[in-house]
C-alpha cells in the first residue's frame, strides 16, 4: 500500500464513522460535531485527490462557516422532543434502511462498474498548465464558467436577503414600555422575582445541581429548563442532606 492508499483507508474510514455518528447521535450537537469530523476527513481526501483548493475551501467554508452556522442555530433552537430516536412513523426506519442499502449497492455497482476498467489520467498535467491547481480552477471559473460564477454571486446575495426576510419578525404592537412589562409581570400571578439559584454545596457547585428547600426537598425552578429537558439534573444525595441537617442541628 502506498502512502496515498493509507490516507484513503484512514480518512475514508473516519469519514464513514463520522457519517454514522451523524445519523446515530442522540443529541443534535453531537451530530454536528460528527459531521464536522466527516468534512475534515473529506477535505483530506480532496487534497489527496489533487484538489488542494477544494480541500481548503471545504475546511474553511464547511467546517468553519457552515457547520458553525448549524451549531449556532442549534443553540438558538435548543433541545426538544425531535432529538428523540424513537421512530413515530410505522415502517419508516426499516424501509429507510432497506432503501439506503439498496441505494448504496446500486450506486456501487452502477458507478463503480463504470470506472473499473478506466485508466486514471491524473491531474498533474492539468494542474501544471497554469502553474498550479488554484490557478487552473481560477482560469476555468473566470473563462468557461464565468456566467455560472456570476449567477452564483447573484444567488448568494439573494440567499442572504432571503434569510433576512425569513428571519425578520414584523412588530405588530408598539414596543412595551418598562412600566407595562412590569405590570404584566406582576399581574400574571407568576413568580415576579428571580428564580432560585442552583444549589451551592461544599462538594457540588454547578448549575445542574438543584437548590434545596428548607424541608430538604428539591426546588425544580432552580435548574435551567434546557438542562431539565436534557435530563442533566444532578441527583441530590440524601445522605449528604441528612449530614447537613445534623450539622445544622448541633
Amino acid at each position: 500500500m502506498s502512502g496515498e492508499d493509507w490516507v484513503f483507508w484512514i480518512s475514508g474510514s473516519f469519514a464513514v464513522i463520522g457519517a454514522l455518528g451523524l445519523v446515530f447521535s442522540r443529541k443534535a450537537v453531537h451530530s454536528a460535531l460528527w459531521v464536522a469530523f466527516t468534512m475534515i476527513n473529506l477535505a483530506v481526501l480532496y487534497i489527496a485527490n489533487s484538489a488542494p483548493f477544494l480541500g481548503m475551501v471545504q475546511i474553511i467554508v464547511y467546517t468553519g462557516a457552515v457547520m458553525m452556522l448549524f451549531l449556532f442555530v442549534l443553540m438558538v433552537v435548543g433541545v426538544d422532543s425531535s432529538d428523540s430516536l424513537i421512530e413515530t412513523l410505522r415502517g419508516q426506519r426499516i424501509s429507510a434502511i432497506v432503501l439506503g442499502l439498496g441505494l448504496a449497492v446500486l450506486l456501487v455497482v452502477g458507478v463503480g462498474n463504470g470506472l473499473v476498467n478506466s485508466a486514471t489520467v491524473g491531474l498533474v498535467e492539468a494542474n501544471s498548465i497554469d502553474g498550479g491547481n488554484v490557478e487552473g480552477i481560477a482560469r476555468l471559473i473566470f473563462t468557461d464558467y464565468l456566467i455560472a460564477f456570476e449567477a452564483t454571486s447573484a444567488l448568494l446575495i439573494t440567499a442572504a436577503l432571503g434569510a433576512m426576510v425569513l428571519a425578520h419578525r414584523e412588530r405588530w404592537l408598539p414596543r412595551a414600555t418598562q412600566q407595562e412589562l412590569s405590570k404584566g409581570r406582576f399581574l400574571s400571578g407568576s413568580h415576579p422575582g428571580n428564580l432560585p439559584t442552583p444549589g451551592v454545596y461544599a462538594r457540588h457547585n454547578a448549575v445542574d445541581t438543584p437548590a434545596l428547600l428548607p424541608d430538604g426537598s428539591i426546588s425544580e425552578e432552580s435548574i435551567p429548563r434546557p438542562l431539565q429537558a436534557r435530563g442533566d439534573v444532578r441527583a441530590v444525595d440524601h445522605h449528604e442532606v441528612n449530614e447537613i441537617k445534623e450539622v445544622d442541628s448541633q
Partner: peptide, 28 residues
C-alpha cells in the same frame, strides 16, 4: 399521503432506487 415530509422523502428515495435499478439493469 400522511403529510409527513419524511414519508415523501422515503418514496422519493424509493423512486430513485427504482430508476437506478433500471439503469443498472440496462447497463449490465
Amino acid at each position: 399521503q400522511s403529510g409527513f415530509a419524511r414519508s415523501y422523502a422515503l418514496s422519493m428515495v424509493g423512486g430513485t432506487v427504482l430508476v437506478l435499478l433500471a439503469l443498472v439493469l440496462v447497463r449490465l
